[in-house]
């Protein structure tokens, strides 16, 4: 499990921040967990502006854990901002909230959330749900290179079995250091050039 993936928690309640840190500790996670306490700070962090301009201190996150109900810019607005900016569109976002209200769930997915987790009341269950974030989303799930991204996708072609095997064997485990990101962005992830991509999200 790579330990260099930075997680950005957007959460205005200090008690919930402590709970998540404790759940991380109980699961033995060593992922750097950075916290901002409202939507405006989340956007500033992603832009790398103001207090967040030093990327050695505030690295580009590989994953965002997003509370919904916050004063000012709320979680929905943050999600909408992320999905409407091509350079951040790929960034995985997991909504982490006390809400299980149906319209909140629908709206979050409509805006492009990768997952929606309602914090269980029982702490042991909460620890288990956080464990799943580490085991699935940060380990088994293949993450995109940490942003910002250059959107330039294109068609794919059917490759041979031998090509598949070679790619599989040599698949590198990406870390979140900027070197990899920059190298990836040089070619824009575009194997054949061409087709303009439109956001699937509103």
């Amino acid at each position: 499990m790579p330990v260099t993936r930075t997680i950005l928690l957007v959460e205005d309640n200090p008690e919930d921040v402590l709970l998540l840190r404790e759940a991380f500790r109980r699961n033995g996670f060593q992922f750097p967990l950075l916290v901002v306490s409202n939507g405006e700070q989340a956007v500033s962090y992603l832009k790398g502006e103001g207090d967040y301009s030093d990327r050695t201190q505030f690295p580009v996150p590989s994953l965002i854990l997003l509370d919904l109900k916050m004063p000012g810019m709320d979680g929905f607005q943050v999600l909408q901002w992320i999905r409407s900016h091509p350079e951040w569109r790929c960034l995985p976002v997991i909504v982490l909230t006390t809400s299980f209200y149906g319209p909140d769930v629908e709206r979050a997915y409509e805006l492009g959330a990768n997952s929606f987790l309602t914090k269980p009341v029982e702490f042991d269950q909460y620890v288990a749900s956080v464990r799943n974030i580490g085991e699935f989303w940060l380990s088994k799930n293949i993450m995109p290179e940490p942003g910002p991204f250059i959107p330039a996708p294109s068609r794919i072609s059917k490759s041979t079995d031998s090509e598949t095997q070679d790619q599989h064997r040599t698949a590198p485990e990406k870390d979140s250091k900027h070197g990899n990101r920059d190298k990836h962005c040089e070619n824009g992830g575009n194997p054949a050039g061409g087709k303009k991509l439109h956001s699937p999200w509103p």
């Binding site: 569109r89 790929c90 995985p92 293949i142 993450m143 995109p144 290179e145 991204f149 959107p151 996708p153 294109s154 794919i156 490759s159 598949t164 095997q165 790619q167 599989h168 698949a171 990406k174 990836h184 070619n187 992830g189 575009n190 194997p191 991509l197 956001s199 699937p200």
Partner: peptide, 14 residues
């Protein structure tokens, strides 16, 4: 079986 970063990126973009 294809971990090509371009495919990963395109998948998330879509």
């Amino acid at each position: 079986g294809h971990p090509d970063p371009a495919y990963v990126k395109r998948a998330y973009e879509l």
